[in-house]
């Protein structure tokens, strides 16, 4: 059974490397949106792999590990979407390399409609 434990430990090590890459991206990227991209994506697969390794080592708690993996897979994109929407709405400064912004026109239109109704 030693070989199964070593395989699980190696999967956990791979997951922790992805977590490290996520936080390096958090430091290196220039603005909020690219930070959200690298941070949440790399941390999702990192946590998933490290939990999978622990689940291979302890097979009797595999049910809880599976629930935790599904839960993270559902909630992580939702929270990153909410953060990106809030950041764009309150007008956080975008990076200088941003090439196109089609969302800005849409939000300006929405604001104009709102002021018309209130007048």
């Amino acid at each position: 059974m030693e070989i199964i434990k070593i395989i699980g430990a190696l999967i956990t090590l791979l997951g922790s490397v992805f977590l490290l890459l996520g936080s390096i991206g958090l430091i290196r990227m220039p603005d909020v949106f690219t930070r959200i991209q690298t941070g949440t994506k790399a941390s999702t697969l990192g946590t998933l792999l490290s939990l999978l390794g622990i689940g291979i080592i302890y097979f009797d708690i595999a049910g809880k590990i599976f629930l935790l993996i599904v839960f993270i897979l559902i909630t992580n994109p939702v929270s990153s979407h909410m953060l990106a929407r809030a950041a764009h709405y309150i007008g956080v400064k975008k990076a200088d390399v941003t090439v196109v912004d089609e969302l800005e026109d849409f939000e300006n239109e929405k604001l104009n409609n709102k002021t018309k109704i209130s007048e």
Partner: peptide, 26 residues
């Protein structure tokens, strides 16, 4: 796609020139 996206992120983060070209599309 999830695994591919993570290797994509890893390539972008590690490469010293930071190859990004971001934008908002519809």
């Amino acid at each position: 796609e999830l695994v591919k996206s993570n290797f994509d992120v890893a390539r972008r983060v590690v490469s010293p020139k930071l190859p990004i070209n971001p934008g908002f599309v519809e």
